[in-house]
Design a protein around this nucleic acid. Sequence first.
DNA 1: TATTCTCGCGATCGTTAGCC
DNA 2: GGCTAACGATCGCGAGAATA
Length: 225
Amino acid sequence: MAERIKQSAIKRDFWETAITITTSDDDLSKGHAEYLEARLIEQAAQAGRVTLDNGTQPDTTRRRLPEADVANMEQFLSNLRIILPVIGLEMLKPQPRALTQTAKPVDERTEGDVQFEIRHKSGVKATAVEEDGEFIVLEGSEALSETGYVQQSYGGLKEKLISDGVLIPVDTQKLKFAKPWPFTSPSAAAAVVLDRNSNGRTEWKVKDSKQTYHDWQQAEANTRI
DNA sequence: TATTCTCGCGATCGTTAGCC
DNA sequence: GGCTAACGATCGCGAGAATA
């Protein structure tokens, strides 16, 4: 394992962090490790959040584990799915429907989700949904540009979205989302849409209503009590 | 090696101005 | 007067540097 990590560090100059997974009683055999590796690669590929650069793609069926061991490893995996996001690693978390099912119409793939919107006086309009804690601005949404406001701390993010082709220019003052994009917070999404820092919790409103995202969240919390 | 300090960034709050 | 937009202020957090 030490040798393999060393080789990977030499061959892959993008490497910044290596994470070691083990058990408290150190009872992972080579077979267990291969099974876990195969399943982790499989699940990371299914989730589609990261680009895999792995020359080794072991097959879970290649080395047959006893049924009891498979069950143990699946339990181990389910624990990993809980622990990894806690330390900021979300490569196993499936992407939200709003991002993955783009072949379906927006209304169909966001069915059941509450839609939020921003309507700016300039006519710029953006729509978003919240899924699994992520705030996803839907394709076709518009964003202001070249407003010239200072203190836009999300300027870098917006530039990246433009260079990645997520935001495409409509005219000199308007951009359009070519595809849905997940933001870490409603404020980040609002800042990109409005081209200025803003409190996304009050800027985003439930579609066709005056209820803010903040109020909606409060109402949701109250209904769960 | 541990602790403290500094800086930058993101998230949110609070104030002000303008409009209806 | 109420609402909204604009934007400055503040807080929290993490990373890296400096220091004991």
